[in-house]
Structures are given as C-alpha cells and as structure tokens.
Write a protein that binds this DNA or RNA. Sequence first.
DNA 1: ACTTTGACTTCGG
DNA 2: TCCGAAGCCAAAG
Length: 117
Amino acid sequence: MHDRIRRAILSVPYGKVASYGSVARAAGYPGAPRMVARVLRQSEGLPWQRIVGAGGAIKCPGESGFEQRFRLQMEGVTFRGRRVDMKRHEHRFTKPPRKKAAESKAAKARQTRAANR
DNA sequence: ACTTTGACTTCGG
DNA sequence: TCCGAAGCCAAAG
C-alpha cells in the first residue's frame, strides 16, 4: 500500500500540489490521509513539499512548514496568504491503478465537467 | 490486546 | 477567518 501512495505522490508534477486527501483517494485509500503523511515522513526521495492540507494549507509543523513553503515557491507555486493558491496549482489525479468500468466512466464525466468549466 | 498519536478532513460555532 | 469536536486508519507504545 505504501507503494500506491508513494506512486501517487510521485505523480504530482513539478509546480503543482495535491492535498493529503486527494493523494489518499488517488492511491485507492479514501479516508486515510493520515497514512499519506506517515509515508511522507518515512519514505525518502519524495517530493513531500508538494503535499499540502485541504484547501492548500501547510500542515507541516515548525521549520518544515517554512521550508516547504520556500521550496514550493521555488517551483513557481504562488500563495494566497498562508495557503497555496489551489485555483492554479491543485493537481487533479486520474486514478491510474483503477480500471473498473463504472469508475473510469465516473472519472471521465468528472474530467469532461472540468474541461467544460 | 488496548490505548495513544499523527505533516488529515469536515462541520459548526 | 480561527478554534474545537468528531470521524478515521494504521503504526507505536
């Protein structure tokens, strides 16, 4: 399961961010955002700075939070006060490791809607 | 085997 | 906008 989460995190492109919840869902574990955080701490070599709290909030405590913010800005991510400007940098997952007809249909509908919007 | 804890989320006040 | 309570999952103690 760590792998799924890890891959989901790695799939977040440079200059974009994703919420713990999003990553969890994308990995196939909706309702387990806390594990995402756990993986981020244990596993090395991950773009941890791209993972933020719901609404773009920096959840890392102390210095880490400051560093995260700095790194994101380095990637061109803009901030709206204390949070990331999700309107521009929120990454939308596409659930790669999922292949059920119903789900891909739903995903497609979602993307269509997003495109229209 | 039980309780505590955490880089979370959502809902109310 | 900020703070607290409840829900939730897995790893540690």
